[in-house]
């Protein structure tokens, strides 16, 4: 038995229109677009700070485990990742990406601990508000800790009292000793 496949050669309007007389050279187009992005820097820097504040607020609210709240957090993290990356705040971009990875790991493993989100939210505030004042050594240390936490979550078994006690993401009050 063979599967039926239909092959179609569609009309390619995009190609025809792109090659019409006039237009713009790539270098000029890219330079103009970079200038347009730069013109939005101030406005979007304010938006970025607002998104970081929203992340902190959402991370600290009750009902964080429900699907809507998790969806909101993921959405905020993606916005921060995009804006921080656009304006070359590499540390903040890393925090947002790592948060998305952590949340994915928590979802896949059924981990419901909320401390990792709170820690990422605090790190995001640090790098959004005072990233240039943090020493390279401290920056490295913070980012390494976050990365280590995500790696731990990726290996983590579902939350239970005994797992929680060994979890580096657990709040101090829940950790033994």
């Amino acid at each position: 038995m063979t599967a039926k496949a239909r092959l179609i050669t569609p009309p390619y309007q995009l190609q025809q229109k792109l090659l019409e007389p006039g237009g713009i050279e790539k270098d000029k187009a890219v330079a103009d677009a970079a200038a347009a992005v730069e013109n939005l820097r101030q406005k979007l820097s304010i938006a970025l700070a607002e998104e970081v504040a929203r992340l902190e607020k959402s991370a600290s609210q009750d009902g964080r485990g429900d699907e809507t709240a998790v969806g909101d957090l993921r959405k905020i993290a993606r916005v921060i990742y995009n804006l921080a990356g656009t304006y070359r705040n590499a540390e903040l971009q890393f925090v947002a990406a790592n948060l998305l990875d952590s949340m994915e790991a928590m979802r896949d493993r059924g981990v419901s601990c909320t401390a990792p989100v709170e820690v990422h939210a605090r790190a995001a505030r640090l790098f959004a508000a005072a990233g240039d004042k943090v020493s390279p050594a401290s920056t490295d240390a913070v980012l390494k800790q976050l990365k280590g936490m995500t790696e731990h979550l990726q290996l983590q078994r579902p939350c239970s009292p005994e797992n929680c006690a060994r979890c580096p993401a657990a709040p101090r009050s829940q950790a033994p000793g």
């Binding site: 090659l19 347009a36 992005v37 656009t86």
Partner: peptide
């Protein structure tokens, strides 16, 4: 040279900041 002035684009994104950035780049093109 590439002429994008006669194109019509559909942007599907719920993130208003991303749309603003993308729209600005496309207009510059």
């Amino acid at each position: 040279r590439y002429n994008l002035s006669n194109l019509s684009a559909l942007i599907v994104d719920g993130d208003t900041h991303a749309v603003e950035l993308l729209g600005g780049m496309l207009r510059a093109f």
